[in-house]
Nucleic acid binder design. Structure first.
Lengths: 118, 118
DNA sequence: GATTAAGTTAGCCTTGTGGCTCAGTATCCG
DNA sequence: CGGATACTGAGCCACAAGGCTAACTTAATC
């Protein structure tokens, strides 16, 4: 565990903002230019661009400029990173549940553990 | 979409820090006291406690103090929140792939807006 | 070739985050 | 009772995040 370095920090931090999550939602439906993406938000463009750059540097999207238009595309990779982490956590959890099942008959006076079974 | 308010912000932001992710990993294996959790980290206790409180206020863990020991327990709820969001995004993505399949022959100059009506 | 459109750069400002120390408080142990 | 243990609270600090405006750079369009 914790073998992903900075990457996970960035991937998750990118999700910790409603603007960025909404952008990802829209990009899920297909590529779009920066101003198309920015349109639903009140925000000034430079502010919005920071979100776009953040998403790109976290690996959630890739962008390409042709002419004066920058087009953004969703990258599925990051979804996989998140899912991998989630599965990893769930595995730890399950493994523990198994252990507890085999543990039922044991006396265990220091408490804590028993209460967690609920 | 975007019907979860602040909650998602907090849930994801809580994950955007290696210390907190590692704490969650350890709690996956069962409840633990604050100092047990803090032990692997170099950090001073008050600093560490901020992470604990953050995790708690984001709903990732719950804590209970008995005597002078505060015991922390993982809450599965937040996993579900994350998974729900992930599935939602994946759905958008899939729906789009379907649409694209039915779309191959169409010309598509003014883009995005029209496509959203579909 | 002048205007408009789409970004981009630079710089500022406020708040939040993640760390610290130092000084409590409240058990628990002997 | 007295000391150790396990937090807790207050306050400080540096830096990152997320917003702004104003000015600039490139296309595209007329």
């Amino acid at each position: 565990m914790a073998q992903y370095p900075q990457q996970l920090d960035d991937v998750f931090h990118a999700l910790a903002d409603p603007t960025r999550r909404e952008v990802l939602g829209r990009l899920g439906a297909g590529p779009a230019s920066v101003s198309e993406l920015a349109e639903p938000f009140e925000m000034a463009l430079p502010s919005f661009m920071k979100h776009i750059r953040y998403l790109e540097s976290a690996g959630w999207i890739s962008t390409r400029k042709s002419g004066r238009v920058r087009t953004c595309v969703l990258e599925r990779k990051s979804f996989d990173v998140v899912e991998a982490w989630l599965r990893e956590q769930r595995d730890i959890w399950e493994r523990r549940t198994d252990r507890l099942e085999r543990f039922v008959t044991t006396t265990h006076d220091k408490a804590t553990e028993k209460e967690a079974r609920e």
